[in-house]
Write a protein that binds this DNA or RNA. Sequence first.
DNA 1: ACCTGAACACCGTTCAAGT
DNA 2: ACCTGAACACCGTTCAAGT
Lengths: 234, 234
Amino acid sequence: MTKRTARAEPLSRARIVRTAVELLDTAGVRKLTFRALTERLSTGPGAIYWHVANKDELLSAATEAVVADAVSVEPGAGDTPREAIRSVALGLYEATEAHPWLAAQLAAECARSPWGAVAPRVFEALGRQVRALGMPESGWFTATSALMHYVFGVAAQNAANTAMAAALPQDASRIEYLETASRAWEALDPAAYPFTRAVAGQLRDHDDRTQFLSGVDLVLAGIVASAEGGERQG
Amino acid sequence: MTKRTARAEPLSRARIVRTAVELLDTAGVRKLTFRALTERLSTGPGAIYWHVANKDELLSAATEAVVADAVSVEPGAGDTPREAIRSVALGLYEATEAHPWLAAQLAAECARSPWGAVAPRVFEALGRQVRALGMPESGWFTATSALMHYVFGVAAQNAANTAMAAALPQDASRIEYLETASRAWEALDPAAYPFTRAVAGQLRDHDDRTQFLSGVDLVLAGIVASAEGGERQG
DNA sequence: ACCTGAACACCGTTCAAGT
DNA sequence: ACCTGAACACCGTTCAAGT
């Protein structure tokens, strides 16, 4: 058995990033520190700084690694563009479920460099299908942007629900959390929040995943409608 | 002249939050520390902790204050629902331009408590107009969520452009930044990023604000189309 | 070229003590 | 009830020194 032990594996940027993702997944952003990292990798901080410029770069690298992995799924041969878009979007959605830190980090990453390394990955995966949808080229950027922004927006919002529910005491899970949130909406000031109160029941009963895909369909419907409505625009 | 001096004004949660927003605006998230805060307010850290539980709560409060302000604009009397939605969305968009820290903080806030204090404010403002659009009640939640998520997604992405461009050396402003980003897209691997490369020119020429509103229109088109397509769904 | 680890400047938070 | 400010535990980052 020539099993390589962990401590034998040489230090490298890839290994540091992988360890950072593990730490992020198991302990959360707060616990990702250079101290924790040096311990897990059994080195000194200086060794890590040799491979990585600073903590921001490390977080960017971790985010990009996870996004790249999520978006790399090739669409099935028989998939329609619509199905392919749904599956790319769903891949990203599920990544934010699997890595609760991803959503906030995605936003932070965009703030660091808006059209940096992460956006093109998502943009490419979605855009190919937008093109396949038969959009005129002039609409590609707008349509793909809208789709991507919707997905990022959901990521920021909904993925957190899962993490939130998971953090609740024991069996008080997702459903109970939505119950609480729904009641909070019902308790809002009737004068200031009539609409939100009216919709509290739909919040309670909704399923994040279904909801997310409905939103994707809605944006897709908008893309198709805009493409058809086309030229005439006041 | 009975001008009240700053140091005479008593410490309060509101004043702390207001000072935090100022510090956030002028110096950035990194520089918002309890040290800086105590100096600006000429007190000790203990005094701040009397009014505010911890830094997370302070950031939440700052975020909510800014969002509440941005969304509180009443739609004009003659506005169509579509116009009202555009102006609410634009208000939020402009808030993320005026407060570069807002986008990332919005995401962090959602992660802290997904359906907490910030979401209902946006939800209510957008939802009223969705209702006015004549949607059937069963679609309110989905449609308003999609709209809100799109807006949040853009906030995370585009607002950063402005901050990014502003941080560039002098007159190398927005346009030059987009030029750089566009060239980076053109330099991507042709095999892996055919679509993104094809669209690099549109990235260069686009205007964030116009782009944002086009996306809002696109989602609105989807909402209307879905409402009409209605019941028949495989 | 790559790694070590002590040291530095700084941070959020606490708490006994004051008014 | 509200504020003071020293103290604590911890953090990201640096750097002279090693191999």
